[in-house]
Amino acid sequence: VTTYKLVINGKTLKGETTTKAVDAETAEKAFKQYANDNGVDAVWTYDDATKTFTVTEMV
């Protein structure tokens, strides 16, 4: 189990959160659900070296 981080650069929601998951795909599903629940529709990137997902909402 690995800890993954999500950085949110949204128009109305900004911040960071983490989740523990067995792999990046599982973490991504959890983070996308979190973003969807909070109304963030954005572009996703992932950095495997830092285990960090970044979501940037387009203006």
Rank of each mutant, 00 (worst) to 15 (best):
E57G: 06
A27I: 02
N9L: 13
T3A: 04
V1T: 10
V40S: 04
D41Q: 09
L6D: 01
D41P: 09
A27C: 03
T18C: 13
K5G: 01
D37V: 13
W44N: 00
E57K: 07
F53S: 00
V7R: 04
E57Q: 08
A35W: 15
M58S: 10
K14H: 11
K29V: 08
V59L: 11
D47V: 03
M58V: 12
D41T: 09
T2P: 05
V55A: 15
T52V: 04
N38F: 15
N38L: 15
D37Q: 13
Y4C: 03
N38W: 15
K14V: 10
Y34M: 07
T45K: 07
Y34S: 03
T54A: 03
A49V: 10
D48I: 06
Y34T: 03
D47W: 02
K29D: 04
L6F: 06
E25P: 07
E16T: 13
V40Y: 10
T18N: 04
G10N: 06
A49D: 10
T3V: 12
T52Q: 03
T17W: 15
D41Y: 12
T12L: 12
N36T: 13
K51D: 01
G15E: 12
E57I: 10
W44F: 10
T17G: 04
K14D: 05
V40F: 15
K14A: 08
K51I: 01
D23T: 05
F31W: 02
L6Q: 01
T17D: 03
T45S: 12
V43R: 07
L13R: 07
T2E: 10
A27L: 02
T50A: 05
K20L: 14
L13N: 08
K5R: 12
E28P: 00
K32M: 09
Q33A: 11
F53H: 00
F31E: 00
A30L: 14
K5Y: 14
G39Q: 07
E28F: 15
V55I: 13
A30F: 15
G15C: 15
W44M: 08
D37M: 15
K11T: 13
V55Q: 03
D48M: 06
V1D: 08
A24Y: 14
V43T: 09
E28K: 11
T2F: 13
K29M: 10
A21P: 01
T3P: 02
D23L: 03
E28R: 13
A35D: 02
E25M: 10
K5M: 06
N9Y: 13
K51A: 04
L13P: 04
K11G: 14
V1A: 09
T12Q: 09
A24E: 04
M58T: 11
T50R: 05
T19C: 14
T17L: 14
D48F: 06
V40G: 05
T3D: 05
I8V: 06
K29G: 04
E57N: 06
T56P: 02
D47Q: 03
A30R: 12
D48K: 06
D37Y: 13
K51F: 08
A30N: 07
G10M: 15
D37P: 07
K32C: 05
Q33H: 07
K29E: 06
K11M: 12
T45L: 07
A24D: 03
K11Y: 09
Y4N: 02
N38Q: 13
T56Y: 11
T26E: 11
L6W: 03
A30P: 01
V22W: 08
A27D: 00
T2K: 10
K20D: 12
T50F: 03
E16Y: 13
E25I: 10
T18A: 05
V40R: 06
K14R: 12
Y46A: 00
T56R: 05
D47Y: 02
A27K: 00
A42Y: 14
A21F: 05
D37G: 09
T54N: 04
L13A: 06
A27V: 02
F31G: 00
V59H: 10
M58D: 11
K14W: 12
Y4H: 01
A24P: 09
T50L: 05
T26D: 06
A35L: 15
K14L: 10
Q33D: 05
Y34K: 03
A42N: 06
T17S: 08
N36V: 14
T26I: 05
L13D: 06
D37C: 14
K11L: 14
T12H: 13
V40H: 06
L6M: 08
T50Q: 04
F53W: 05
D23R: 03
D41K: 10
F31N: 00
T45W: 06
T56V: 08
N9H: 11
A49L: 11
T18D: 04
T52M: 02
T52W: 01
K51G: 02
I8G: 03
G15A: 14
V7K: 05
K51Q: 06
A35T: 12
L13Q: 07
T3I: 13
K11A: 12
T12E: 09
A42S: 07
L13K: 06
K29F: 06
G15H: 14
D23M: 03
D23H: 03
T17F: 15
K14F: 10
K14C: 15
K11S: 12
A42Q: 08
Y34E: 02
D48P: 12
K51L: 06
Y46W: 02
V22R: 11
T50S: 08
T54M: 06
D48S: 09
V40E: 05
M58Q: 11
A21R: 02
N38V: 15
A49R: 09
T52G: 00
K11P: 12
E25Q: 12
N9I: 14
T50V: 04
W44P: 01
V55N: 01
A42F: 15
Y4Q: 01
A24T: 07
K14Q: 11
G10T: 15
Y34N: 02
A30Q: 11
A49W: 06
F53C: 01
T19Q: 05
K14Y: 09
L13E: 07
K5V: 08
T3W: 08
L6C: 10
T17I: 15
T54W: 11
T26P: 01
V1N: 08
T19G: 03
A42K: 05
F31K: 00
D41F: 13
N38T: 12
V7S: 03
A24S: 07
M58P: 11
G15Q: 13
N38I: 15
F31A: 01
V40T: 06
A30M: 12
T17Q: 09
D48T: 06
T45V: 08
A27W: 02
